[in-house]
């Protein structure tokens, strides 16, 4: 803790600003543990989806519904946002506030673009008669993909909030772990998407 205070007094941040303070160390570790719990949470939603994916009751099936180009676009967008958020963290470690804000800004925009695609997709499905209440398949699909979507939404709001704070206060040992943790969250959301496009969309297309 003493070292942390000392470093803020000087101009630069230490090599690993997110873990330079005791609080920061706790925060990063605690957040990793939380991600461990989230892994199990999503695994259960995946399991539920896999158990119910063929219960479409004569409604549209996975093969009827999913469109590969749309999913590919969403995937590229989210993967790219994962890269931009890690670039932002690198800039943060170099104490470049402006560049960090730029990369995080790009991340948020990509996140919003992803959400836009998802909303478009959902609206499209609802028109085809695939809704949350149309069948067990519908319920399981929207529960899984929707939970992921709400994670994306939360992530964009969170990162935006932090950007506002950083704009007001600049970078310090208080802000660094917050940004670091938010970017971990963002990567995790991306990781979950990797499995959603694999298990839900690609395997759904295969049948």
């Amino acid at each position: 803790m003493g070292a942390g205070n000392h470093a803020t007094a000087t101009t630069g941040l230490p090599a690993h600003p997110e873990k330079a303070t005791f609080e920061g160390k706790n925060k990063v570790l605690g957040f990793w543990l939380f991600l461990g719990a989230e892994t199990v949470l999503f695994a259960c939603l995946f399991g539920t989806y896999l158990a119910l994916k063929n219960s479409h009751l004569g409604g549209p099936t996975t093969q009827d519904l999913f469109e590969i180009p749309l999913v590919a676009a969403a995937t590229i967008i989210l993967l790219t946002s994962s890269l931009t958020s890690v670039l932002a963290v690198l800039e943060m470690k170099r104490n470049h506030l402006g560049r960090m804000q730029f990369w995080f800004g790009v991340t948020v925009l990509l996140g919003l673009a992803f959400l836009g695609l998802e909303i478009y997709e959902f609206v499209h499905y609802v028109h085809e008669g695939h809704t949350f209440t149309s069948s067990a398949f519908g319920s399981a699909f929207y529960a899984l993909v929707g939970t992921h979507g709400s994670h994306v939404l939360f992530g964009t709001v969170w990162i935006t909030t932090l950007m506002v704070q950083a704009a007001k206060r600049g970078l310090n040992l208080d802000m660094a772990p917050k940004f670091y943790v938010a970017s971990l969250y963002w990567h995790f959301v991306d990781v979950v998407w990797v499995f959603i496009f694999t298990v839900v969309y690609l395997m759904g297309k295969v049948g």
Partner: peptide, 14 residues
């Protein structure tokens, strides 16, 4: 509350 069918056998749930 929201009328989904995860557990409703009649609607394909389990």
């Amino acid at each position: 509350i929201f009328g989904s069918h995860f557990f409703d056998a009649a609607m394909g749930g389990n």
